[in-house]
Design a protein around this nucleic acid. Sequence first.
DNA 1: AAGTGGTCTAGACCACGAC
DNA 2: TCGTGGTCTAGACCACTTC
Lengths: 234, 234
Amino acid sequence: MSVMPQKVGYRDIKQEVFRRIRNNEWPPGTLLPGEVELAAEFGCARATVNRAMQELSDDGIIDRKRKGGSRVNLTPVRQVTFEIPLVRSEVEAKGAVYKYELLYNKSDIAPLWLQNQLSLPVHSHVQHIKCIHFADDKPYQYEDRWINQKVVPLASEFDFLKVSPNEWLISEVPYTNAEVRFSATSAEKPVADALGVGVGEPVFKAERITWLSGEPVTFVRLYFARGYEMIASY
Amino acid sequence: MSVMPQKVGYRDIKQEVFRRIRNNEWPPGTLLPGEVELAAEFGCARATVNRAMQELSDDGIIDRKRKGGSRVNLTPVRQVTFEIPLVRSEVEAKGAVYKYELLYNKSDIAPLWLQNQLSLPVHSHVQHIKCIHFADDKPYQYEDRWINQKVVPLASEFDFLKVSPNEWLISEVPYTNAEVRFSATSAEKPVADALGVGVGEPVFKAERITWLSGEPVTFVRLYFARGYEMIASY
DNA sequence: AAGTGGTCTAGACCACGAC
DNA sequence: TCGTGGTCTAGACCACTTC
């Protein structure tokens, strides 16, 4: 037991507990002292300890169960978090000039594969939009998007010549949850032409589905120009 | 003002505030009521409101400043989080049988590019390891790794025939910081051979640098077999 | 049944930062 | 300066889960 400085905050407790875990004083699987005990050791209220331990739990360091107590996780599940910005912001953050170009914009009946992706009823109306985002006049991202007209009827009227569907949707339609899938693919003709790369060249692809309280809003495929890297830290 | 059910928890408040934001009752930029005011409306303690608002802030929905109050974020910067599991766990989670094969394991002087990547002093000793991870006997991931012997001296002695450097390192230096870069690349000969794809085919690549309290631990390049998707929900 | 974490309260003091 | 969020407290009740 050591002397406590002046006041013990939840950050201090979190840091100290984490230190003991990292130094193998409390190896993986260890049953940690209860909140009351820790509160006594650190000379603070249980609520303070609770907050510290809760954050450690959120961080995936420990696992907590009522009656079971807190245990050090056997496999530290590391989580990567990164932001999904507007394409415009992303480009401008790199110090480049953003430009946008609309390629295609038609209302249509959802093709079968899209029906399945979004669990749409047959003969659903969707707005199909293709466009390119430029950074300093060089193609940066090719966007191929379908918007569910049932959820976003305004999509068929809006003029996407100046404003990209990306920005319009964010300002217009909130979403509750989304799923993203990242992969590497080889550029088909339309993608290759849009990005100015050879057919068959590797391209970083992101597919995203967003929902608004259970209703599918939009499905989008994003193809990034050669050299693109998605960076994250943890 | 509506009738409150029985007891108002921080989840209720979070959900209700989020609902008002989503429904444009509180559009982006709006200055929200203070915690005291909200506590009065919801008939609960300020601490409860505080927890709700703090989570909304963590989620990137609102921005909070002392004296400035809470504002609805102009651009809802949603964060994607995904887990970085052990390759073994990842494979087994797909219901496949995991297998591991060591290809190469030598101690060496860090090449110039690696010196730069990890900010190593000249003539640093590193352990260079190449291996393949299989799922149901099909190549799943090709791993090309360098380990800093100054931080992990045991790496030169450990026998990586049975246990992959991935798993060994996690057990040896569990809690580290890292930066990951994801991209699409075309398979060079060694990668293509290891993964059983044609030279030049697109491959999903992840590069990761790992530090332990400021000291570089390892640099690794991971190449995933064709069809690999990294999936995240939020 | 009983022990542990989950949450709420009412009150307090403090620190940041807009004014 | 002074209002707002950030944090802590001491106590309480509850819910889950293991025993």
